[in-house]
Protein backbone atom coordinates (compact mmCIF):
# COMPACT_ATOMS: atom_id res chain seq x y z
CA UNK A 1 0.00 0.00 0.00
CA UNK A 2 1.53 3.28 -1.11
CA UNK A 3 2.06 6.34 0.94
CA UNK A 4 -0.46 8.40 -1.02
CA UNK A 5 -3.15 5.81 -0.37
CA UNK A 6 -2.31 5.94 3.31
CA UNK A 7 -2.64 9.73 3.29
CA UNK A 8 -5.92 9.56 1.39
CA UNK A 9 -7.24 7.05 3.85
CA UNK A 10 -6.34 9.27 6.79
CA UNK A 11 -7.85 12.25 5.00
CA UNK A 12 -11.11 10.40 4.43
CA UNK A 13 -11.11 9.41 8.05
CA UNK A 14 -10.58 13.04 9.14
CA UNK A 15 -13.56 14.07 7.02
CA UNK A 16 -15.73 11.45 8.72
CA UNK A 17 -14.65 12.67 12.13
CA UNK A 18 -15.44 16.23 11.16
CA UNK A 19 -18.83 15.16 9.89
CA UNK A 20 -19.61 13.39 13.15
CA UNK A 21 -18.50 16.40 15.18
CA UNK A 22 -20.62 18.63 12.97
CA UNK A 23 -23.71 16.48 13.49
CA UNK A 24 -23.06 16.20 17.17
CA UNK A 25 -22.61 19.94 17.35
CA UNK A 26 -25.93 20.46 15.59
CA UNK A 27 -27.78 17.96 17.75
CA UNK A 28 -26.46 18.94 21.14
CA UNK A 29 -27.64 22.53 20.95
CA UNK A 30 -31.10 21.51 19.81
CA UNK A 31 -31.73 18.48 21.99
CA UNK A 32 -30.82 20.22 25.19
CA UNK A 33 -33.50 20.79 27.82
CA UNK A 34 -35.27 24.12 27.46
CA UNK A 35 -35.57 26.19 24.34
CA UNK A 36 -32.61 27.65 22.51
CA UNK A 37 -34.77 30.60 21.62
CA UNK A 38 -35.48 31.71 25.16
CA UNK A 39 -32.26 33.68 25.18
CA UNK A 40 -33.31 35.88 22.29
CA UNK A 41 -37.07 35.79 22.40
CA UNK A 42 -38.94 37.63 25.09
CA UNK A 43 -42.40 36.23 25.82
CA UNK A 44 -43.66 39.85 25.64
CA UNK A 45 -42.88 40.04 21.91
CA UNK A 46 -45.72 39.93 19.43
CA UNK A 47 -46.15 36.63 17.54
CA UNK A 48 -44.98 38.40 14.36
CA UNK A 49 -41.77 39.55 16.03
CA UNK A 50 -41.13 36.06 17.36
CA UNK A 51 -41.69 34.55 13.92
CA UNK A 52 -39.35 37.11 12.37
CA UNK A 53 -36.63 36.44 14.95
CA UNK A 54 -36.98 32.70 14.50
CA UNK A 55 -36.70 33.21 10.76
CA UNK A 56 -33.58 35.34 11.19
CA UNK A 57 -31.90 32.67 13.24
CA UNK A 58 -33.28 29.86 11.07
CA UNK A 59 -35.24 28.23 13.88
CA UNK A 60 -38.61 27.98 12.10
CA UNK A 61 -37.84 25.02 9.82
CA UNK A 62 -38.32 21.34 10.62
CA UNK A 63 -35.15 19.83 12.19
CA UNK A 64 -34.05 17.96 9.06
CA UNK A 65 -34.21 21.13 6.96
CA UNK A 66 -32.37 22.98 9.71
CA UNK A 67 -29.70 20.30 9.65
CA UNK A 68 -29.24 20.41 5.88
CA UNK A 69 -29.10 24.19 5.93
CA UNK A 70 -26.63 24.00 8.80
CA UNK A 71 -24.32 21.66 6.91
CA UNK A 72 -24.63 23.78 3.76
CA UNK A 73 -23.84 26.93 5.71
CA UNK A 74 -20.86 25.34 7.42
CA UNK A 75 -19.39 24.44 4.06
CA UNK A 76 -19.70 28.12 3.15
CA UNK A 77 -18.17 29.05 6.54
CA UNK A 78 -21.45 30.63 7.56
CA UNK A 79 -21.79 29.99 11.30
CA UNK A 80 -24.89 32.07 11.86
CA UNK A 81 -25.47 35.15 13.99
CA UNK A 82 -24.33 35.45 17.58
CA UNK A 83 -27.30 35.77 19.96
CA UNK A 84 -25.58 38.35 22.09
CA UNK A 85 -23.90 40.63 19.55
CA UNK A 86 -26.10 39.90 16.51
CA UNK A 87 -22.96 39.82 14.41
CA UNK A 88 -21.95 36.89 12.19
CA UNK A 89 -20.06 34.42 14.37
CA UNK A 90 -17.53 33.83 11.63
CA UNK A 91 -16.46 37.49 11.74
CA UNK A 92 -15.98 37.36 15.49
CA UNK A 93 -13.94 34.18 15.17
CA UNK A 94 -11.83 35.71 12.40
CA UNK A 95 -10.91 38.56 14.74
CA UNK A 96 -9.83 36.14 17.44
CA UNK A 97 -8.17 33.38 15.47
CA UNK A 98 -4.87 35.25 14.90
CA UNK A 99 -4.55 35.92 18.64
CA UNK A 100 -5.10 32.28 19.47
CA UNK A 101 -2.68 31.21 16.75
CA UNK A 102 0.03 33.56 18.07
CA UNK A 103 -0.34 32.32 21.64
CA UNK A 104 -0.51 28.71 20.56
CA UNK A 105 2.49 28.84 18.24
CA UNK A 106 4.65 30.74 20.71
CA UNK A 107 3.87 28.31 23.52
CA UNK A 108 4.34 25.37 21.24
CA UNK A 109 7.66 26.45 19.73
CA UNK A 110 9.24 27.35 23.07
CA UNK A 111 7.95 24.22 24.78
CA UNK A 112 9.40 22.07 22.02
CA UNK A 113 12.77 23.78 21.90
CA UNK A 114 13.25 23.99 25.67
CA UNK A 115 11.80 20.56 26.37
CA UNK A 116 13.90 18.74 23.78
CA UNK A 117 17.13 20.60 24.60
CA UNK A 118 16.75 19.94 28.31
CA UNK A 119 15.96 16.30 27.57
CA UNK A 120 19.02 15.85 25.36
CA UNK A 121 21.25 17.65 27.83
CA UNK A 122 20.15 15.63 30.84
CA UNK A 123 20.40 12.36 28.94
CA UNK A 124 24.10 13.04 28.60
CA UNK A 125 24.43 13.74 32.32
CA UNK A 126 22.80 10.71 33.87
CA UNK A 127 22.36 10.70 37.62
CA UNK A 128 23.18 14.38 38.14
CA UNK A 129 20.93 17.01 39.62
CA UNK A 130 19.71 18.03 36.17
CA UNK A 131 18.68 14.48 35.45
CA UNK A 132 16.63 14.22 38.63
CA UNK A 133 15.18 17.63 37.94
CA UNK A 134 13.82 16.48 34.59
CA UNK A 135 12.26 13.38 36.11
CA UNK A 136 10.64 15.59 38.72
CA UNK A 137 9.47 18.13 36.15
CA UNK A 138 7.92 15.37 34.06
CA UNK A 139 5.93 14.06 37.02
CA UNK A 140 5.01 17.60 37.99
CA UNK A 141 3.56 18.21 34.52
CA UNK A 142 1.39 15.17 34.93
CA UNK A 143 0.09 15.97 38.40
CA UNK A 144 -0.15 19.74 38.69
CA UNK A 145 -3.24 21.63 37.51
CA UNK A 146 -2.06 23.87 34.68
CA UNK A 147 -4.51 26.62 35.54
CA UNK A 148 -3.23 26.75 39.10
CA UNK A 149 0.35 27.38 37.98
CA UNK A 150 -0.99 30.04 35.66
CA UNK A 151 -2.90 31.68 38.51
CA UNK A 152 0.20 31.66 40.71
CA UNK A 153 2.35 33.20 37.99
CA UNK A 154 -0.35 35.76 37.31
CA UNK A 155 -0.42 36.73 40.98
CA UNK A 156 3.36 36.81 41.23
CA UNK A 157 4.18 38.79 38.10
CA UNK A 158 0.95 40.68 37.69
CA UNK A 159 0.26 41.75 41.27
CA UNK A 160 3.14 41.11 43.72
CA UNK A 161 5.81 42.27 41.30
CA UNK A 162 3.65 44.05 38.75
CA UNK A 163 5.98 43.90 35.78
CA UNK A 164 3.72 42.04 33.35
CA UNK A 165 0.26 42.94 32.09
CA UNK A 166 -2.52 40.99 33.79
CA UNK A 167 -4.95 40.64 30.94
CA UNK A 168 -5.59 41.16 27.25
CA UNK A 169 -3.55 40.88 24.11
CA UNK A 170 -2.42 44.51 23.96
CA UNK A 171 -2.68 47.78 25.83
CA UNK A 172 -5.70 49.99 25.35
CA UNK A 173 -5.07 52.39 23.75
CA UNK A 174 -2.20 50.73 21.89
CA UNK A 175 1.05 52.70 21.74
CA UNK A 176 2.01 54.54 18.55
CA UNK A 177 4.34 53.07 16.01
CA UNK A 178 4.68 49.57 14.72
CA UNK A 179 7.71 48.63 16.81
CA UNK A 180 6.17 49.79 20.08
CA UNK A 181 2.97 47.97 19.25
CA UNK A 182 4.86 44.78 18.54
CA UNK A 183 6.75 45.11 21.82
CA UNK A 184 3.49 45.77 23.63
CA UNK A 185 2.00 42.59 22.22
CA UNK A 186 5.07 40.58 23.17
CA UNK A 187 4.86 42.05 26.66
CA UNK A 188 1.30 40.75 26.91
CA UNK A 189 2.33 37.40 25.51
CA UNK A 190 5.04 36.61 28.08
CA UNK A 191 2.78 35.50 30.90
CA UNK A 192 0.30 33.28 29.03
CA UNK A 193 2.87 31.69 26.73
CA UNK A 194 5.53 31.47 29.43
CA UNK A 195 3.18 29.71 31.83
CA UNK A 196 2.25 27.21 29.13
CA UNK A 197 5.92 26.47 28.56
CA UNK A 198 6.71 26.11 32.28
CA UNK A 199 3.90 23.65 32.77
CA UNK A 200 4.47 21.58 29.64
CA UNK A 201 8.20 21.37 28.99
CA UNK A 202 8.82 18.79 31.71
CA UNK A 203 7.04 15.91 30.02
CA UNK A 204 8.81 16.68 26.74
CA UNK A 205 12.17 16.73 28.44
CA UNK A 206 11.45 13.47 30.23
CA UNK A 207 10.31 11.76 27.06
CA UNK A 208 13.30 13.01 25.08
CA UNK A 209 15.65 11.95 27.85
CA UNK A 210 14.22 8.44 28.00
CA UNK A 211 14.32 8.03 24.23
CA UNK A 212 17.86 9.38 24.13
CA UNK A 213 19.03 7.01 26.86
CA UNK A 214 17.59 4.10 24.95
CA UNK A 215 19.42 5.25 21.82
CA UNK A 216 22.67 5.83 23.70
CA UNK A 217 22.68 2.19 24.71
CA UNK A 218 22.79 1.06 21.07
CA UNK A 219 25.84 -0.50 19.47
CA UNK A 220 26.42 2.19 16.85
CA UNK A 221 26.89 4.77 19.63
CA UNK A 222 29.54 2.52 21.15
CA UNK A 223 31.15 2.35 17.73
CA UNK A 224 31.09 6.13 17.35
CA UNK A 225 32.64 6.57 20.77
CA UNK A 226 35.21 3.90 20.03
CA UNK A 227 36.20 5.85 16.94
CA UNK A 228 37.16 8.64 19.33
CA UNK A 229 34.52 11.13 18.23
CA UNK A 230 33.88 13.98 20.64
CA UNK A 231 30.82 13.42 22.90
CA UNK A 232 28.89 16.37 21.41
CA UNK A 233 29.28 14.91 17.92
CA UNK A 234 28.08 11.55 19.15
CA UNK A 235 25.08 13.20 20.75
CA UNK A 236 24.17 15.48 17.85
CA UNK A 237 24.93 13.39 14.83
CA UNK A 238 24.36 9.87 16.01
CA UNK A 239 21.99 9.73 18.93
CA UNK A 240 19.76 12.72 18.20
CA UNK A 241 19.23 11.65 14.61
CA UNK A 242 17.83 8.30 15.63
CA UNK A 243 15.50 9.72 18.28
CA UNK A 244 14.04 12.45 16.09
CA UNK A 245 11.25 10.33 14.54
CA UNK A 246 9.62 9.35 17.84
CA UNK A 247 10.01 12.90 19.11
CA UNK A 248 8.42 14.38 16.02
CA UNK A 249 5.57 11.96 16.51
CA UNK A 250 5.24 13.14 20.06
CA UNK A 251 5.25 16.77 18.97
CA UNK A 252 2.31 16.29 16.66
CA UNK A 253 0.56 14.01 19.08
CA UNK A 254 0.66 16.73 21.74
CA UNK A 255 -0.94 19.37 19.52
CA UNK A 256 -4.62 18.49 20.15
CA UNK A 257 -4.16 18.71 23.90
CA UNK A 258 -2.56 22.12 23.57
CA UNK A 259 -5.42 23.33 21.38
CA UNK A 260 -7.93 22.20 24.03
CA UNK A 261 -5.91 23.82 26.78
CA UNK A 262 -6.27 27.20 25.07
CA UNK A 263 -9.73 27.57 26.61
CA UNK A 264 -8.37 27.76 30.15
CA UNK A 265 -5.23 29.75 29.34
CA UNK A 266 -7.20 32.34 27.41
CA UNK A 267 -9.85 32.57 30.11
CA UNK A 268 -7.29 33.13 32.86
CA UNK A 269 -5.35 35.79 30.99
CA UNK A 270 -8.42 37.33 29.30
CA UNK A 271 -6.70 36.61 26.01
CA UNK A 272 -8.90 37.81 23.16
CA UNK A 273 -8.97 34.44 21.40
CA UNK A 274 -11.19 31.58 20.30
CA UNK A 275 -10.95 29.65 23.58
CA UNK A 276 -12.15 32.56 25.68
CA UNK A 277 -14.85 33.22 23.10
CA UNK A 278 -16.11 29.66 23.58
CA UNK A 279 -16.11 30.07 27.35
CA UNK A 280 -17.92 33.42 27.22
CA UNK A 281 -20.45 32.07 24.74
CA UNK A 282 -21.20 29.06 26.94
CA UNK A 283 -21.63 31.29 29.97
CA UNK A 284 -23.97 33.67 28.10
CA UNK A 285 -25.87 30.76 26.53
CA UNK A 286 -24.99 32.20 23.14
CA UNK A 287 -25.39 28.91 21.28
CA UNK A 288 -24.44 29.87 17.72
CA UNK A 289 -21.26 31.43 19.06
CA UNK A 290 -20.41 28.42 21.23
CA UNK A 291 -21.15 26.12 18.33
CA UNK A 292 -18.91 28.08 15.98
CA UNK A 293 -16.04 28.27 18.42
CA UNK A 294 -16.29 24.60 19.25
CA UNK A 295 -16.36 23.72 15.58
CA UNK A 296 -13.23 25.75 14.95
CA UNK A 297 -11.40 24.13 17.85
CA UNK A 298 -12.49 20.66 16.75
CA UNK A 299 -11.35 21.46 13.22
CA UNK A 300 -7.93 22.46 14.53
CA UNK A 301 -7.68 19.23 16.51
CA UNK A 302 -8.68 17.12 13.52
CA UNK A 303 -6.09 18.87 11.37
CA UNK A 304 -3.44 18.29 14.03
CA UNK A 305 -4.36 14.62 14.24
CA UNK A 306 -4.19 14.32 10.47
CA UNK A 307 -0.78 15.97 10.45
CA UNK A 308 0.35 13.61 13.21
CA UNK A 309 -0.82 10.59 11.21
CA UNK A 310 0.94 11.76 8.08
CA UNK A 311 4.19 12.58 9.87
CA UNK A 312 3.95 9.27 11.64
CA UNK A 313 3.61 7.56 8.28
CA UNK A 314 6.67 9.39 6.96
CA UNK A 315 8.97 8.67 9.88
CA UNK A 316 7.82 5.10 10.45
CA UNK A 317 7.13 3.19 7.23
CA UNK A 318 5.92 0.17 9.22
CA UNK A 319 2.73 2.07 10.03
CA UNK A 320 1.51 2.34 6.49
CA UNK A 321 2.38 -1.27 5.77
CA UNK A 322 0.63 -2.33 8.96
CA UNK A 323 -2.40 -0.30 8.00
CA UNK A 324 -2.73 -2.33 4.82
CA UNK A 325 -2.01 -5.63 6.50
CA UNK A 326 -4.24 -5.49 9.50
CA UNK A 327 -7.98 -5.09 9.40
Amino acid sequence: MGFSRYVLRRLGYAVIVLFVIMTFNFAIFRLMPGDATKMIIDPMFTPEAIAELKRQFGLDDPPIVQYLKYVGNLLKFDLGLSFSTRRPVVNELKERLPNTAVLFLTSFIFTTIIGISVGVYTASKRGTFGDNFVTGAGLFTYAVPTFWIQLLLLMLFGYYIPILPIHGTMSAPPPDGFLLQALDRIHHLILPAGSNVIVAFGSWALYTRNTMLEALGQDYILTARAKGLPETTVLRHHALRSVLPPIITLIFGALPGMVSGAVITETIFSWHGVGKYLMDAVMQQDYPAAQGAFYLIALAVVICNLAADIVYGIVDPRIRVGEGGAK
Binding site: V17, P256, S260, G261, F294, V301
Partner: peptide, 9 residues
Protein backbone atom coordinates in the same frame (compact mmCIF):
# COMPACT_ATOMS: atom_id res chain seq x y z
CA UNK B 1 -10.54 13.08 18.10
CA UNK B 2 -13.01 15.33 19.93
CA UNK B 3 -11.22 17.94 22.06
CA UNK B 4 -12.12 16.84 25.58
CA UNK B 5 -12.14 19.99 27.63
CA UNK B 6 -14.20 22.12 25.19
CA UNK B 7 -16.83 19.39 24.81
CA UNK B 8 -17.00 18.94 28.58
CA UNK B 9 -17.48 22.68 28.99
Amino acid sequence: AIPTLPILI
